[in-house]
């Protein structure tokens, strides 16, 4: 009984210290004591974020061999490589919480861990590469800028690095769209079609409305999340509408209207049935994306095993010298 009271006491002090730190705005570092819920929330969020970067390489990778100029090919390659790098930074930050990349990949394959829903949509034409860079990365950046101030040190540092590198991503996408809108009729139609298909899924990237978001409470209290889904979504809409107008693209939302009082745009209703249907596994590319990831992972197994075996051999040789 006495022992139990003592552990309770220790636990209480730990929680108090942790909350005081959060309150002061100090970053939490890997060896700091933290509540289980905080650790679990971060693991879930960071591994999802990392998986999204890596799965996100696929729809764009689909166009690498068909990029229409050497310059376009270089830009696209560099961008997809960045996504891979960002996945790597995020895995590496998540690993400081005591979960291995191997475990995270296993969770992705078993379906326990998710990735961003947006990548379950197909990249059909070259204009989709523009739309993904401009809208999808544009939406991601709004979220990531906010996350630079997240309370977990390694996560925040990874986000700072990622934001710095991502600044060209959105611009390259917008440049593709702008060039196409200045081009032939075919190109203009292609650009508008991509806009029509990617606009709504991009808005869904911010997640359900604040009124329906299950994890929001703790995430705010612990300063993992610094802005709400709706706030971030609004920010994205407000900056994107003007960019679309400049190059002559129409936002596919007939209810979109400037709200003079609130100084922001009102938008039409988001089709949440579609959102939950795609998350539930019935998007156009869910199976394709996951099959690809599993296949690459399995096909690479013999290479990783060989690298490990070679290291062991060399270590043994060194010992016998």
């Amino acid at each position: 009984m006495e022992l139990l009271e003592k552990t309770d006491k220790i636990h209480e002090t730990m929680l108090k210290n942790f909350e005081e730190k959060i309150e002061r705005g100090d970053a939490i570092e890997p060896k700091d004591k933290m509540p289980d819920g905080y650790r679990k929330h971060l693991m879930r969020q960071m591994s999802q974020h990392a998986h999204s970067e890596v799965i996100g390489m696929q729809p764009e990778g689909n166009w690498i061999t068909r990029a229409p100029s050497l310059r376009a090919k270089q830009i696209l390659l560099a961008k997809i490589q960045d996504e891979g790098g960002h996945g790597l930074y995020l895995y590496s930050a998540a690993e400081t919480l005591g979960i291995s990349r191997d475990e995270m990949i296993a969770q992705l394959h078993s379906g326990k861990a998710k990735y961003s829903n947006i990548f379950n949509y197909p990249a059909l034409t070259w204009a989709d590469i523009g739309a993904i860079g401009w809208l999808v990365d544009g939406a991601a950046i709004v979220n990531q800028v906010s996350l630079q101030r997240t309370s977990y040190g390694p996560y925040s540092r990874a986000m700072v690095r990622i934001c710095k590198e991502e600044s060209f991503h959105q611009r390259q996408g917008y440049e593709i769209m702008a060039n196409m809108m200045k081009g032939t009729k075919d190109q203009q139609e292609m650009a508008q079609d991509a806009m029509n298909r990617w606009w709504w899924p991009s808005l869904m990237m911010f997640g359900p409305h604040d009124s329906e978001s299950p994890h929001t409470g703790d995430a705010f209290k612990w300063k993992i999340k610094r802005h709400s889904n709706d706030e971030l979504r609004q920010k994205f809409i407000d900056k994107t509408v003007q960019q679309a107008e400049v190059i002559g693209l129409t936002i596919p939302d007939k209810d979109l209207k400037w709200n003079e009082e609130k100084k922001c745009y009102n938008h039409g209703a988001i089709n949440w049935d579609e959102f939950y249907r795609v998350i539930g596994g019935n998007g156009p590319c869910n199976k394709q994306r996951m099959d690809h990831h599993v296949k690459v992972h399995n096909e690479g197994a013999w290479v990783r095993a060989a690298a490990d075996a070679y290291r062991l051999k060399k270590e043994k040789q060194l010992l016998h010298l």
């Binding site: 890596v54 270089q74 997809i80 790597l88």
Partner: peptide, 29 residues
């Protein structure tokens, strides 16, 4: 080499092969 993008045995190697492809595209230019 660019066909290896998102197909390499480990993420780090994916970045490496992409770097090589980028070097070569620059050389081709």
């Amino acid at each position: 080499l660019s066909e290896w993008c998102s197909n390499a045995p480990i993420l780090e190697e994916d970045l490496a092969l992409t770097n090589f492809a980028l070097d070569m595209t620059g050389r081709a230019q």
